[in-house]
């Protein structure tokens, strides 16, 4: 039961690299999973490593209100799962998992953990002989063996193939349910699956924080919208959509006297340049809709198709269970409560 806060404001310099400034704050409640989401080079791994105590910094990290900024990593009681596993190659799987147990008063049984994660049969093997998924399960077991107060995970699924990612992601959801965790990823699917709250980073700064719904449905900027997979529509290039939205604002203003429409409910501006909407929110109809669009491309995905549609000077993506024919006209509906200015 650990509440973690971190407020990092530091410039880091690696050999031969440009100095990089991280200016980011996190607050993670007990047993909550905070996902740090951002593109490569946004500083999310650096932030995680700084929370772990690997880098000196000018900032403050607290655990349950106690300032642990000056504590070395070995005294923090955290677990860490690395993207590239970082298993000790000269030790067996069992020795890897037991590595930290001698330093902790309370620890978990290595054999039991390996069995829970489905890799008990590998206990006497050496890490270089394991597959990526097996290695990451062992790395997860090693971190869990010390009963960490906080789990720090740096893109643990990034180096794995898709089926292994899905299987391990399911395990992670279970594992992270009852531990405070900070999970760094650039994968929005993973973020949505494991997050209780999300912090989006860009260029070393936090650009949005909130629940998964906040971030995915109400992105704070076009960058966040694009990164989370939403359509970003430039209204200056989509006059037909702007007209519809203006009409909505007008009619709502007339009905409630507020002068504000549904689209600008959060931003408080009537003149947003961009609106974001998730692909799954847009519906395709044969006849009635807000406007007409041309089908430009259809890509089959698992149980549905991703359809690229063009209207005015913009394109948007939507999902359809029965894909339309490329080149045909379809009617699009934009649920007003899913449109968000950004």
């Amino acid at each position: 039961m650990t509440r973690l806060t971190a407020d990092i404001r530091s410039t880091f310099t690696a050999d031969g690299a440009e100095p990089f400034t991280v200016d980011a704050a996190l607050e993670v409640e007990s047993n909550e999973t905070c996902v740090v989401l951002g593109p490569s080079g946004s500083g999310k791994t650096l932030l995680l490593e700084t929370i772990a105590g690997f880098h000196e910094h000018t900032g403050v990290v607290t655990a349950n209100g106690t300032d642990i900024t000056g504590q070395p990593p070995e005294e923090r009681g955290f677990g860490f799962v690395f993207q590239d596993y970082a298993l000790f190659p000269h030790m067996t799987v069992r020795e890897n998992v037991e590595y930290g147990t001698r330093y902790r008063e309370s620890s978990r049984d290595a054999a039991e953990l390996l069995a829970e994660l489905g890799v008990a049969h590998l206990s006497e093997r050496n890490p270089p002989t394991l597959s990526g998924g097996e290695k990451q399960r062992v790395a997860l077991a090693r971190a869990l063996a010390i009963r960490p107060s906080v789990m720090l995970l740096d893109e643990p699924l990034a180096a794995l193939d898709v089926p292994t990612q899905q299987a391990l992601r399911d395990d992670l959801v279970d594992v992270l349910a009852d531990v405070t965790a900070v999970y760094v990823t650039h994968n929005r699917t993973t973020a949505r699956a494991v997050a209780d709250r999300i912090v989006v980073m860009q260029d070393g700064r936090v650009v949005q924080r909130g629940t998964p719904e906040d971030v995915f449905e109400r992105p704070a900027s076009p960058m966040v919208a694009r990164f989370t997979g939403a359509n970003v529509i430039d209204l200056s290039a989509a006059p037909s959509l702007r007209r519809i939205l203006d009409d909505d604002i007008g009619s709502q203003a007339r009905s409630d006297g507020s002068g504000r429409g549904p689209v600008d409910r959060d931003s408080g501006t009537d003149a947003a340049d961009h609106v974001a909407i998730r692909p799954e929110a847009i519906t395709l109809n044969d006849a009635d809709g807000d406007l007409s669009a041309t089908v430009e491309r259809v890509v089959r995905e698992d149980a549905t198709s991703r359809v690229t549609l063009a209207f005015d000077d913009v394109t948007v993506e939507a999902f359809a269970t029965s894909p339309p024919v490329v080149g045909t006209e379809v009617a699009l509906s934009f649920p007003r409560d899913r449109l968000h200015p950004c």
Partner: peptide, 27 residues
């Protein structure tokens, strides 16, 4: 030696001396 191996050793409880004795030195 990958820095992350030393990080992994430290975060799981080993101090600098122990990290050298158990990880860095043997590798």
């Amino acid at each position: 030696i990958d820095d992350r191996l030393e990080y992994a050793s430290r975060i799981h409880g080993a101090n600098n001396w122990e990290t050298f004795r158990r990880v860095t030195g043997p590798l």
